[in-house]
């Protein structure tokens, strides 16, 4: 099943929550949460699928000040599996009460850093055995990285100043690849034409997708045409 793009969810107050729910449905997680900070506007964003009861408890007890899933991911390049945090003295302080609200302690937090010091993290959780968790995690990590970047980019661009600062800065090679794809060539064709490997074409496509805030290649091609970066095929 493919993840829907935030472009496809109509502008509304709860579109980010809907997106997180979609992540949970697509990859079989119980809950998801995104937290982000943009130093440009100094604004904090928090979007969660957790129950109102758990949100209220979390807030009333100031758990965000000790929650190791947040504090560890802030200092990490790699996603932080919560299994790694079990020895943290604050782990049980968050996950013992969480259990009362039906939230398990298997999860992972994916940090995303932006070029201007923006920082965001996507957390997902599922109440299951350790073996089941590791299997699920390994199957979806590539997609989860993309989902984390996708919601992060959208939330950051929701601020007028950041939207102004953001230019989809594509390299000549990325534009060249998109132009051939717009002309209907396959990635293999593009590789042959440009005399590079298909895997390298794929790298340029991934980078172009990220810069155009697109989840799929056809969305990226569409947006690039819309922005007059390339010509329609």
């Amino acid at each position: 099943m493919d993840l829907i793009s935030l472009h496809d969810i109509p502008e509304s107050e709860d579109r980010y929550t809907k997106y997180l729910h979609n992540i949970c449905e697509t990859y079989e997680f119980d809950d998801a949460a995104y937290a982000g900070i943009n130093p440009v506007g100094g604004v904090m964003h928090a979007i969660v699928t957790y129950s109102d009861e758990w949100q209220a408890y979390y807030q009333d007890n100031n758990l965000h000040t000790i929650d190791p899933t947040l504090h560890s991911a802030m200092r990490s390049v790699a996603p932080v599996d919560w299994l790694r945090l079990k020895k943290d003295q604050n782990f049980r302080k968050v996950f013992d009460p969480a259990r009362e609200f039906g939230i398990g302690d298997k999860g992972i937090t994916i940090p995303i850093r932006g070029p201007f010091g923006e920082f965001g993290m996507l957390s997902v959780t599922r109440d299951c055995s350790k073996d089941e968790w590791i299997k699920l995690r390994n199957n979806v990590m590539i997609d989860l990285q993309q989902a984390a970047a996708h919601i992060h980019d959208h939330v950051m661009h929701s601020e007028p100043l950041s939207r102004y600062l953001h230019h989809p800065n594509l390299s000549k090679r990325e534009l060249e690849v998109l132009q051939w794809l717009a002309a209907g060539k396959s990635q293999q064709d593009v590789a042959d034409i440009l005399n590079i490997s298909t895997r390298t074409v794929e790298v340029h496509v991934r980078s172009a997708r990220e810069k155009l805030v697109a989840l799929t290649t056809s969305q990226a091609v569409g947006r690039a045409i819309g922005m007059n970066l390339i010509f329609p095929g």
Binding site: S171, V203, R206
Partner: peptide
């Protein structure tokens, strides 16, 4: 040229 940017790279 601008750099490659991707959450998967």
């Amino acid at each position: 040229e601008p750099p490659v940017r991707s959450p998967n790279i």
